[in-house]
Write a protein that binds this DNA or RNA. Structure first.
Lengths: 352, 352
DNA sequence: TTGTAAGCGTTATCAG
DNA sequence: CTGATAACGCTTACAA
């Protein structure tokens, strides 16, 4: 591998000049020298060592993103957003699966710190009072002191700015919408006790129900996946409870509910409506009424401040971006039935 | 940030000794010294600089994985596998979205090379004779010479070993299975002309059809997503063609077909069966009969050889892992109907 | 068992 | 405009 000295040698200049030429440095370089150096670099197939650059400049153009599981479309979206922003600025994106385990997160943060990553983004919400949370918080504080920009996309017990959205309002808005659409026996399925995001969504739901004088019915702490929504729904059906609408804590739980309903021969939305939170790609194809979360936007914003070098300091302790309700076929409303029929005839794209 | 010299100073030893102590070096170190160094390191909160280590040892414990789009569950699964293997060996995983664009891939490979990544894994199949493919192949060759282990998970015009599966056999086996189940008018939906994986699957399908004396019906070059499968299916229906089974080029296309059928009021599998290729998580929840691809296994194997340091040299030019047919509810077979009913009653988990 | 010193490939400071 | 040279933080012969 040709190094800078090789280039300098071949061009007949000093390494300093070679360096100045090859970076778009402000330092002046004569046109003739510039050419010679650039030619030499090309001929030698010179590749600058990002390692050496990072070592000497004490800043590594790398962003770490710590997710629960990249296979979860929620996190995949976040990583995509981060990588898009990173790539645009010449940064690389390191992805870490922590499976919501603070010890794993600590381990990852440690490695990222060893690499002097420019920033680290925590994508998932943690468990309240989880084991290892204190150690993590301490590590984060150290990393921050050291100059690393660390940002969280979800509410956590961490001394870092948050770029996210209001989970409580999300749950509440969706519930209020269903109520105003005429639903009364609204159930909430899926969730994990202690997981901030999950808890807040449910609390928002309960708040809206209480304000409307309706009784809440949440099957909590069953999980965040299809299975969870499926099991919770089957449980209600077996117990003889028949809600007129079901809210899934996320798209996956709602899809689980949808499948359970379908398998039981219950028509959606005529007999039971279903709504979800997330609007990940699958939601579109299940035609789920859902709350679109500003996932991409929050992640891109977090990554943006990191590559801008302003990082956490440019951020308020909390930046909340807006969510938006999207009405689709799984809740009844004038027009839906007709829309479905037209789509089946191919007159509308599936996204309409 | 405390460096090794700080630790050495505080422990009253040389940096060499400090280094030897803190790495699990084979070099002998007295117990007393060891303690002193370890204490000093702990007290100072010493973090080894991975950058410096990589620079001097000329090897960076980092694996790059270049995917089409991390949001695609197919690629998410690959990245998860790579990261699992990497993490287990103390490696970091860099993910790059290239959107199947060779120029993007080249750019990413360049950055990874600058970082002296231990290895790079190409996850997606490329387009045959794509622009920029030559340049990419050249870059790959250089990277390999330089000692970087680069491996592909899909058939490509690249001078690297392949760890994958047999797409042609996948398409053929699935088709043969459907034929032997009694289906005759089998259509193939979704795909992209020139995309190796896509083409091979379709060719496998066509081969099986031809061997059975049946007529093929593929709507090619429409895409690999839900929309593609949906549009192709709607197209057939509108044209008055009614297959008795539909194969999706991947899970997403099959799900698109499924939705189109459902929206048209056509019952699956009674009127039209659906099968797919992939077995990504969504496939399970749509109860798709599918071919499970050894995605995780191939990616883990590729990553494994990289962290083992043997890399490409330990690999045959082609390593093909086995796929497996999984029968679910979207194709008719004795037992399926009854199974659905039992599941709805909650007697079976959704995964059964 | 420990220390010395020569790099690894850059950038940046300070003279020319 | 160009050139020495000292870092950056670490590993590793080679000595002691």
């Amino acid at each position: 591998m040709a190094s800078l000295v090789d280039v300098a040698l071949r061009a007949g200049v000093s390494v300093a000049t070679a360096s100045r030429t090859l970076n778009r440095s402000t330092h002046p370089v004569s046109a003739a020298t510039r050419r010679r150096v650039e030619d030499a670099a090309r001929e030698l197939g010179y590749r600058p060592s990002s390692l050496a650059q990072a070592l000497v400049t004490r800043m590594n153009r790398v962003i770490g993103v710590i997710v629960g599981d990249i296979v979860d479309p929620y996190f995949a979206e976040v990583v995509r957003a981060v990588e898009d922003s990173a790539r645009g600025a010449g940064y690389l994106t390191i992805v870490c699966n922590a499976d919501r385990n603070p010890a794993q997160e600590s381990a990852h943060l440690g490695m990222l710190r060893n690499y002097q990553a420019a920033g680290v983004i925590f994508a998932g919400s943690g468990f309240a009072g989880d084991d290892g949370g204190d150690e993590l918080a301490q590590l984060v504080a150290q990393a921050t002191e050291q100059g690393m920009h660390v940002i969280s996309l979800a509410r956590r017990d961490l001394p870092v700015p948050l770029v996210g959205y209001d989970n409580h309002a999300v749950g509440r808005d969706l519930t209020v919408h269903l109520i105003s659409s005429g639903y009364r026996r609204i159930a909430f399925v899926g969730g994990l006790t202690g997981l901030y995001g999950s808890m807040l969504r449910r609390e928002g739901y309960e708040r809206a129900m209480a304000e409307a004088g309706l009784e809440s019915s949440a099957t909590d702490d069953v999980g965040m996946d299809h299975e969870a929504g499926h099991a919770a729904t089957v449980g209600m059906l077996v117990a003889g409870q028949r809600p007129d609408a079901i809210i899934g804590v996320n798209d996956e739980a709602a899809i689980g509910a949808l499948m359970a309903l379908e398998r039981a021969g219950i028509e959606v939305p005529r007999e039971v409506a279903v709504a979800s939170i997330g609007d990940t790609p699958p939601a579109r194809f299940f035609e789920l009424t859902t709350v679109r979360l500003p996932l991409y936007e929050t992640a891109a914003m977090a990554a943006g401040t990191i590559v801008a070098g302003t990082g956490a300091s440019a951020l308020a302790s909390e930046t909340l971006l807006a969510h938006r309700l999207i009405e689709r076929a799984t809740t009844a409303r004038a027009g839906n039935a007709r829309r479905r029929a037209r789509r089946a005839r191919g007159e509308l794209a599936a996204s309409d």
